[in-house]
């Protein structure tokens, strides 16, 4: 099938590339745009490692065709830190609270948690766990991921957080 021109905004930058209609968004991001932060984990829309923010929605980019995202605004883990390299509160939280071990799920976790905090800036622990139910972590047991998100929520809300990592 002939390639078609696909244009979108990724991490604030307008990008354009040729791709077949059957090209999945995750392949478009990783192979055409060299954004290898979003990972391919299960490739079956379960694990959430490929999660990106698409027009204000958390999306599993292994289950969206790039062409469906034509004209969309996308944010990946590469777009989380400030231009000067200052980490986003969520990235800082994952570092401070030991929210990762192998790190494979982390880009999806952080991008998902970003949208969760946009919609609910002050989530309870239960709401955090429900909100990241589409992201699987095989290392941590989630405890410190929850704390990392609580850390970020507190920081973004300007409230001090006393709790330490497990």
């Amino acid at each position: 099938m002939a390639k078609i021109q696909i244009a979108m905004t990724v991490n604030g930058e307008a990008v354009e590339a040729l791709a077949e209609p059957r090209t999945l968004l995750i392949h478009f991001l990783r192979e055409q745009l060299n954004l290898t932060g979003p990972h391919i984990g299960c490739d079956t829309s379960h694990c959430g490692a490929c999660t990106v923010d698409l027009d204000g929605k958390s999306m599993k980019s292994c289950t969206v065709f790039a062409v469906q995202a034509s004209g969309a605004e996308i944010r990946t883990i590469e777009g989380m830190a400030a231009a000067d390299g200052t980490l986003h509160a969520l990235q800082e939280g994952f570092r401070e609270m030991h929210g990762l071990q192998c790190g494979f799920c982390t880009p999806g976790m952080i991008v998902r948690a970003y949208r969760l905090l946009q919609e609910n800036p002050n989530p309870t622990e239960t709401e955090i766990r429900f909100g990241i139910a589409g992201n699987l972590c095989r290392c941590t047991g989630y405890q410190n991921i929850v704390k990392a998100i609580q850390y970020a929520a507190a920081k973004l809300n300007g409230v001090p957080l006393q709790e330490a990592a497990e």
Partner: peptide, 9 residues
Amino acid sequence: IADPQVRYA
């Protein structure tokens, strides 16, 4: 139904 990401789509 499913999980948050799937419910957005």
